[in-house]
Computed example of a mutant assay.
Amino acid sequence: MIKGLVSRIALIASWLGVIAAPAQAADFAAFNAGYARDVVTPAFKTLAGETRKLAQAADDFAAQPSQDGFAALRVTFDSVSDAWMQAQFFRLGPLGAQQRSERFEYWPEKRPIIDKQLAALLAKADPDALATEKFAQSSVAVQGLPALERLLYGDAARQVLSAGPEQKARIAVIQAIAHNLDTVAQELAAAWEQAQAEPKLFAQDPNEATAQLYAGLMTGLQIVSDQKIAGPRGQTLDKAKPKSAEQWRAGRSLKNIKLNLQALRDALAGPSGFATLLGADQAALKDEIAKAFDAALAAVDAAPEPLDTAVTDAEGRKKVGALLIAVNHLRDVLNQKVPAALGISLGFNEMDGDGS
């Protein structure tokens, strides 16, 4: 596991074009270890705790379907989604391996296949295909949160309570997805726990590892800007794509953006975040980072909910546009000013050239 993780770090470094800056006074090895211990690992442990509750709720509902059980499933779906939004941008290492990120949340859809593949899965409802190990090898389109969202919040979601012919199949697929999400989350938490115990993970080139960890956050911020905000908003009102918003069926699109920004702020400016690498002479930059995050989060709060409705309304679009401007300003600060101050250099990231 660790050898594979180290190899992936080296591969991603080459892929991203990260070039290590000259050695700085900062102790990058100590920072990386603290960042993994205090920022990344807790996020995945929290995720694993929430997916365990989701799997249990799915089992309880399967044993005795009820309105209360269905409501409990939605609550645990929300809790897992909350935790995922605070962990999904720690892409280096375990999350990037074995398609775990795509298996947890296949979004945005490169092509509209989730509905089609989910319908096929429900039509067959083959117990063997839904068994944990077999299901983990199925299409990523049906393994994670987007497919589960359709079952809990889609047009036909209440069929799971109707005692009709589709009820059994829907409950079985809900269970399969819930347990798959739990399996992935437990793997992620365990992998990061194991990585902390292996000092060689960050010791081979600590500066380079710091650059890669930072690049992962910048990729995450680009996803917020380009895919979570600009994508649904479109260039003009007639080009808005409201149904491309993340988790719009569950009404979570803006909440997800806020959780992403809060997690990124903690990773940048928290007690074990990247700002701890900035010297005392960088107080003005620290203040600029804090103000940029405050402005972006305030813009989220000012945007009308739900996002998929706001982007199709002239007044709503103005506030979503203001959010986009605030997030892009934050991106500029973090991309243009911070790396040099940290003593790292960034090249291309994994979103460059991505047409999705």
Rank of each mutant, 00 (worst) to 15 (best):
E149N: 08
R150K: 15
L151M: 11
L152S: 05
L152E: 05
R158F: 11
R158Q: 14
Q159G: 13
Q159S: 08
V160Q: 01
L161T: 07
A163M: 00
G164W: 02
G164Q: 02
G164T: 03
P165C: 05
E166T: 15
Q167I: 10
Q167N: 05
Q167L: 08
A172R: 03
V173Q: 07
V173S: 09
I174K: 08
Q175H: 11
A178Y: 06
A178M: 07
A178E: 12
H179A: 09
H179F: 06
N180G: 14
L181F: 06
D182F: 00
D182C: 12
T183C: 01
A185I: 10
Q186R: 15
Q186S: 09
A190T: 15
A191E: 12
A191Y: 02
W192I: 10
E193H: 02
A195R: 04
L201Y: 15
F202Y: 14
F202E: 03
A203D: 13
A203I: 11
A203G: 04
A203Y: 06
D205A: 06
P206G: 15
N207H: 09
N207M: 05
E208C: 08
Y214A: 05
A215W: 00
G216F: 07
G216N: 14
M218L: 15
L221V: 10
Q222L: 13
V224K: 04
V224D: 10
V224Y: 02
S225G: 14
Q227C: 01
G231N: 12
P232V: 05
P232S: 09
R233C: 00
G234C: 10
G234T: 13
Q235P: 03
T236H: 04
T236F: 03
D238F: 10
D238I: 11
K239H: 00
A240F: 06
A240K: 09
K241W: 01
P242D: 02
P242F: 00
K243N: 11
A245T: 09
A245C: 10
A245R: 09
E246D: 13
E246H: 12
W248R: 13
R249P: 04
A250Y: 01
G251N: 08
R252M: 10
R252A: 12
L254Y: 05
K255W: 07
I257S: 07
I257Y: 06
I257M: 09
K258L: 15
N260Y: 05
L261Q: 07
L261A: 01
Q262R: 12
L264Y: 09
D266I: 03
D266M: 07
L268E: 10
G270K: 06
P271Q: 14
P271V: 03
